[in-house]
């Protein structure tokens, strides 16, 4: 465990906590993409099924449980608790366009043709595009709640930090994980526009508004 990965995981955790706090505080899930949350739930469930047969560390197990349960809790908040606040009419990105290519990529690029390896690869590719419905929604509405913006920012930081983590691990351990590395580059690229607007607007205390 190096500092990059640890900070990345903390940032990932923070993003989820921010989202839950926002929904609970405002008693509303307005501005949050249900589709993105659903995709993340799918990412975690398909990636972390190894929790039952592959032990890494207490930290690893704890985080896996946290990510799966907290994301399902967000789905519950959006679908049941604060359902009326969520407008499906602005959450229109077709998730098939993310799920289908991820499935194809998982079948082509993986660490071996076992169910576990294919699901793992699928989850990695899926994660790289899972933020798209949220970014799409942001683009449609043109502005967002400060907390939603911080949520996306924390999520982007998490992905960005995994890149130096892998470079560090390559140098110190000779460890190479090309699938996750490539998928993460794609994912970070998706955030670049968002980061730019975040930097030019939010950092200067302005409201998050798309130009």
């Amino acid at each position: 465990m190096n500092i990059f990965r640890f900070l990345a995981d903390l940032s990932h955790m923070a993003s989820i906590v921010i989202l839950i706090l926002q929904i609970r505080k405002t008693k509303s899930a307005a501005g949050v993409s249900y589709k993105t949350q659903f995709l993340y739930a799918l990412v975690f469930v398909t990636r972390y099924i190894d929790i039952f047969f592959h032990y890494v560390s207490l930290y690893n197990t704890f985080m896996k449980i946290f990510f799966v349960t907290s994301t399902i809790y967000i789905l519950y908040l959006m679908r049941v608790q604060y359902k009326p606040s969520h407008d499906p009419n602005i959450d229109t990105f077709r998730i098939e366009y993310i799920i289908a290519p991820s499935a194809v990529l998982a079948l082509i690029i993986n660490h071996g043709y076992t169910l576990y390896e294919i699901l793992w690869s699928f989850s990695v590719w899926l994660e790289s595009g899972a933020i798209l419905p949220q970014l799409f929604m942001l683009q449609r509405t043109g502005e967002a709640e400060t907390l939603t913006v911080h949520y996306i920012f924390a999520l982007g930081i998490y992905r960005l930090l995994y890149i130096p983590n892998w470079i560090y691990r390559y140098v110190t351990e000779g460890r190479v994980e090309p699938i996750a590395f490539l998928a993460s580059l794609i994912q970070t690229a998706l955030y670049s526009d968002f980061f730019y607007i975040y930097y030019t607007k939010v950092m200067q205390g302005k409201k998050f508004e798309l130009p």
């Binding site: 990965r5 995981d9 990932h12 190894d50 592959h54 890494v56 690893n60 985080m63 896996k64 990510f67 660490h111 071996g112 390896e117 793992w120 995994y162 983590n165 460890r175 190479v176 994980e177 996750a180």
Partner: peptide, 10 residues
């Protein structure tokens, strides 16, 4: 490299 080591991250 063992497969197990490839999935020690989140």
């Amino acid at each position: 490299q063992k497969i197990e080591d490839e999935h020690d991250e989140l």
